[in-house]
Amino acid sequence: MIIDDPSSHFIFIYHPFVLMGKKYTVYQGRELTNGEVLKYWGKWIVLGNKDWLDDLAKKLDPYVEEKKIPCIKYDRNPSSNLGTTECVFMVYCDRRDRDNVWRILSRMGVKLKAWVTEKETMEMWMPGKPLMERWMKSQGFDEPTRDMIRKDAETRIGKIFDNPDMIFTGWEQ
């Protein structure tokens, strides 16, 4: 189902079971640990204008309902503060399923093939890394606030790296 809440920057496509508290970071019916998410979880990145992505979302929603795609998230507007001028559409899945998911995307006309691991994304949002620093600069935060945000990110993301056997519970950018 497509979750389009105008107050959110992102539009999501989840299976309804996620709204009942079940996780989508699952492989063969088993919830992934932090260590497994770092090793296997990622997304195919699709870029485009909002209208085309809305249409793609409608076409892919049935595949999420059939559990062939675990989750999709995409921008309502381009993240110009991070330097993008197109909306980013992220099709999440386990690396071990990614070829199957790519075949679905390919049938929908997606051509540019870009797989980004969740680990790589987390690393880009760590203190001193490009997306974190670019985002803080765009927000105009003063240095004490930036330091507080850096420490918070280090703690939150660090917990995932430091506890590989715990079940993954998500993270916020």
Partner: peptide, 30 residues
Amino acid sequence: NGENIRNMEGLDTKVNPDDEIGIIPLAAGG
């Protein structure tokens, strides 16, 4: 072919006929 070349040999990564190179803005990966 969909794999980030940072996880391969960067710009020295070897290519084969019919391979596909893709480029996206860094921010799109986050």
